[in-house]
Design a protein around this nucleic acid. Structure first.
Ligand code: ZN
Ligand code: ZN
Ligand code: ZN
Ligand code: ZN
Lengths: 154, 154
DNA sequence: TTTGCAACTGTTACAGTTTAACAATAAAGA
DNA sequence: TCTTTATTGTTAAACTGTAACAGTTGCAAA
């Protein structure tokens, strides 16, 4: 969780990936979409639709929800279903990867594990059941290192 | 997915576990709670709160939500966050196990994998990050064997 | 048995979240 | 330029979940 990232670098890289991807898909990275994207990328924390909307000059809900749908479908963000929130994804190289998230319920920072960490066995089991996977959510809620430290010092 | 279960047996077993657990916890398995429990256990399909409420004679929301909270906290059902729905849990022996669900988005049948299938690596990674897990969701959405077969025949 | 506490229920009203629908614009290509 | 498609603006409504508080029930101690 630790903010050990050079976050300007995170943002820049994400932005670049987004622009590249949109060009490739022949879709537009419009103002609203870019706006929501930047808001989400302010940090590695999960953000709810409502929080995002607030920063969108309280624009009407459809504006934000459409942008979120767009970004999600493009694989640029993850929907954190257990929090009903969103977070930026850095693994845009393979847009079909499965998000495996460590989510701190104290500070809402999120670390995304490298693709394939826990997924192999799950995929194997699915195959055993004749199940065709389409979308997978792996979300571990808990407390991150930093927040644990703060707990102890409190 | 396949309804290869003797579902009366599933229900009976779940009911027994629920009664046992409530006794052990010193809480009551009241009418509403039992009602919601039975509704959820009609099948292995995910059910939304709204669907459940319909079958509760359209009783007021708090009735149903309270019962759902109770059952969830008791470990008798799983909250399927990616669908915002609920499903019965058969692994009531260890109430703190992690639900690992194969969810068919065509028929909404759910198979729950045995505890520990995919979780080891995830837990290992969490430890590497100094993260203390508290609650984990592993949900694979897709199409089950039966629905795949129907697709081909359609 | 009575009394008192805690768990549970009933009910109202509200807050929060998401979507439908459709008209208006803007961009891209023929 | 004209046509088509993607995107936006706007309103209103549907859906989902909760706060608050009064009433009731079960249980156990006095
Ligand atoms: Zn960063
Ligand atoms: Zn990702
Ligand atoms: Zn069954
Ligand atoms: Zn379970």
């Amino acid at each position: 969780m630790s903010n050990i990232c050079d976050h300007n670098r995170c943002k820049k890289s994400a932005r670049k990936a987004a622009e590249h991807l949109c060009k490739e898909l022949g879709v537009r990275f419009t103002t609203h979409r870019r706006r929501v994207f930047e808001i989400i990328w302010q940090s590695h924390k999960a953000m709810s639709a409502a929080q995002i909307m607030q920063q969108m000059d309280n624009s009407q809900p459809p504006i934000t929800y459409r942008a979120l749908d767009f970004l999600k479908n493009a694989g640029l963000i993850h929907h954190v279903t257990s929090l009903n929130a969103y977070v930026g994804c850095l693994h845009t190289q393979n847009p079909n990867h499965i998000g495996q998230l460590l989510i701190c319920t104290s500070c809402y920072n999120i670390v995304e594990l490298e693709p394939k960490t826990a997924i192999e066995k799950l995929t194997f089991e699915a195959k055993q059941h004749g199940f065709r996977p389409n979308q997978t959510h792996i979300e571990m809620l808990g407390t991150c290192k930093d927040c644990l430290k703060n707990e102890r010092n409190a």
